Simulated scan of single mutants.
Amino acid sequence: MFAPRRLKIGLSACFQHADPSRSLFTNKTLQYVEQSIAHWIMSAGAMVVMVPCPTGDTARGDVTLDHYAEWLDGVVMHGGADVWPGNYGEEPLRQEWLGDRVRDLYDLAVVKAFAQARKPIFGVCRGLQLINVAFGGALYQDLQEQHPGAQLHRNASTYDQHFHDIELVPGTRLAQLYPDKPSARVNSIHHQGIKRVAPDFVVEAFSLPDRVPEAIRLSPGPGRGYIAATQWHPEFHQAGSQTLDDTAILNDFLTACVAAQPGTFGGVHTPLHLRDRASRLLRKAIKSKK
């Protein structure tokens, strides 16, 4: 355990939107967490709290994401659906790459709230892509179609048993966590990827041999908190397997959460310019689903 009290770590919600054809919870919006990522965070003794979207047609009360960011010690951004290309200034090339605009706006608002509260943020898969977009980066809508020479990064049949190698960038924090591993093997469950890295972020790992960014981190600086992400799912690592051990990554994030507890920062907010339309547009986007 990382502190005299157990850490409270937020986990962003996944969405299943209202569906009149669904036999269970008919026409109700579901927000949920995937079991293995919750258990991954809990494996180090931290408690996990899902951060529900506070808006929607059933919304009541005055609880906001800012309240969650103030109360919790950090947040992990889930994997899941594609990021809508409009969030980085592009038109979708295919209908199936539209992503989930409602979830995008919710996730952008979560990142904004925790960044402004100076609470650590860690992203997994979609979480990495969303963080990159939130801070001004862009994505390949499909690596196979848009990235020359890209290897297969997602296999629907093998799913989390599809792997490739990565190169850790020397001198980065991730490389320091694995000093004896200039390269490693990781799972690969994505078809989108980083095309342009967000300003003030550094790439900490590339896929081999096609060099797609596989890990990013916010560069240290005045007024900046801990923000890091991996394109692979560290929570899917199995003890004894040949994939990169997730322990150092989780411990690094939770150590940052301890350091970010009240009193450490003196209330200073991040100067980074997040895309600030999320709170206003989230309610509008959810209403448009009705």
Rank of each mutant, 00 (worst) to 15 (best):
L65G: 02
E70G: 03
T172W: 01
A256S: 12
L152D: 00
G149S: 04
I189M: 15
G56I: 08
K287A: 15
A248K: 15
R217V: 12
I9M: 06
F265T: 14
S279Q: 14
D73K: 07
A38W: 07
R60F: 10
E70W: 01
V203Q: 01
L254G: 13
H191Y: 14
L105M: 04
D246V: 09
A228P: 07
I37F: 12
L98T: 11
V33D: 13
I249E: 06
M50A: 02
V197C: 14
W232G: 01
V63K: 08
G149I: 11
D245W: 11
V186F: 05
P262Q: 04
R60P: 00
M50R: 02
T270E: 06
W71G: 00
L105Y: 13
G10W: 12
G225Y: 06
L168A: 00
Y159Q: 08
T58N: 03
H237S: 10
A13S: 15
I286E: 13
A215M: 08
K289W: 15
I216G: 09
P20C: 04
I131G: 00
Q261G: 06
G45L: 08
A69I: 07
G74P: 11
S43P: 01
Q231K: 01
R173V: 08
Q141M: 05
A69T: 05
T243R: 14
R6N: 00
I194Y: 09
G86I: 03
T172K: 01
T270W: 04
V110I: 14
G240S: 09
A248N: 12
T172I: 05
T158N: 07
F122T: 12
Q242G: 00
D66V: 13
Q35I: 00
P179I: 10
M47G: 13
D100N: 15
S12W: 11
P182L: 13
C14L: 10
F206M: 13
A229L: 08
R185F: 05
A134I: 01
Q31Y: 09
V49L: 02
F265P: 04
Y88R: 03
C14T: 09
R154C: 14
V133R: 05
Q16S: 08
I249W: 12
P182T: 04
P213T: 03
H190W: 12
K195I: 03
L281D: 15
G223N: 10
V75Q: 09
Q192D: 06
A156M: 10
P222M: 09
R224C: 11
P222I: 03
I227D: 07
S43N: 03
A248W: 11
L281F: 02
N155E: 11
S23N: 04
R126S: 03
